[in-house]
């Protein structure tokens, strides 16, 4: 799954077709996205300024923009936590995924494709099952706690589950393939001759990496961090299974307001705030990282 398209190649094969044909190709898919992505977001916007009309599940349009402010103040703790956990998980995933992608791209020889399959293979075991497995692995009876206790790294009273540590571990784990694949894709595209040229110009291995490989792989790093950060910031499963009441994230609040409290307007307002915050961050990040070609 390459998220970044190849900069060359694209330029010279494009047909300058004045006919309607490309639009015919686009129409069905874009219509679907319009009806089931744009239109729902518009509905969400409309819902976000409604107020409860007394009866459960009945809402009136009152253009109450204070919903945004009120819900944000109520959930500001969870909001900050979502972004903190997602940032930590993204950094951990990057630290694990970059060397992994590097090894697959440059050191795996004929095993390359098999290793790539192995990166996405855990997807096929439901992510819920794997998250629950983490709960067991980090749990009281699990090996990690036992090892850390025997080595006196943690005290006998410390537990690893139901903690922020477990939630961040779970997030980093769950989205690791989304980090690895784009980085791999951008590393794999590097022309080996540029690396040879760097060596010919007396750069040592580390300098070559720092001056050639790393900059050329930046598009993959940007795509990977986005594909990890965005779902992690909106996640509530890891916080539910691996966390405790003090590790609840924004997703937990939105979910509870939708299904338990049946307060759609503030849930919608919070969803909107989350989406806006993410889009602003993403725009800044892409500007800063200097890659426009993201799709």
């Amino acid at each position: 799954m390459a998220v970044i398209s190849r900069p060359s190649g694209k330029v010279f094969a494009l047909k300058d077709n004045k006919s309607l044909f490309p639009y015919l190709l686009l129409a069905p898919g874009l219509l679907w996205l319009f009806m089931f992505f744009i239109l729902p977001i518009a509905n969400l916007a409309q819902m976000s300024t409604k107020t409860n009309s007394g009866e459960t599940g009945q809402f009136e349009q009152t253009y109450r923009f204070a919903n945004f402010f009120d819900s944000f103040m109520d959930a500001s703790g969870q909001f900050a936590r979502s972004f903190l956990y997602a940032t930590l998980a993204t950094l951990i995933a990057l630290a694990i995924a970059y060397p992994l992608a590097y090894a697959i791209a440059f050191k795996s020889g004929k095993w390359k494709n098999v290793l790539l399959v192995l990166v996405i293979a855990p997807f096929f075991v439901s992510f819920l099952l794997r998250t629950i497995a983490w709960k067991q692995i980090l749990g009281e009876e699990g090996p990690v706690t036992a090892i850390l206790r025997t080595l006196h790294i943690i005290s006998p009273q410390t537990t690893l589950t139901s903690s922020a540590f477990a939630v961040v571990t779970g997030l980093a784990y769950n989205f690791l393939p989304f980090m690895t694949l784009p980085i791999y894709a951008s590393l794999e595209r590097i022309d080996p001759r540029t690396l040879e040229a760097s060596g010919d110009l007396y750069a040592n291995g580390f300098t070559t990496f720092r001056k050639v490989t790393l900059p050329l792989s930046m598009p993959g790093v940007v795509a990977g961090t986005l594909l990890t950060f965005i779902p992690a910031a909106g996640d509530y499963i890891n916080a539910n299974i691996l966390g405790n009441p003090n590790t609840k994230m924004l997703g937990n609040v939105i979910e509870a307001r939708f299904f338990k409290i049946v307060d759609y307007p503030t849930a919608a307002a919070l969803s909107f705030t989350l989406m806006a915050a993410i889009l602003i961050l993403v725009t800044f990040y892409i500007r800063k990282a200097g890659t426009e070609e993201l799709v």
């Binding site: 729902p40 969400l44 986005l226 965005i230 779902p231 909106g234 939105i254 969803s271 989406m275």
Partner: peptide, 11 residues
């Protein structure tokens, strides 16, 4: 792809 799943589902 840049929208969290919970926002997609909620909308």
């Amino acid at each position: 792809m840049a929208t969290p799943e919970i926002v997609l589902g909620a909308s």
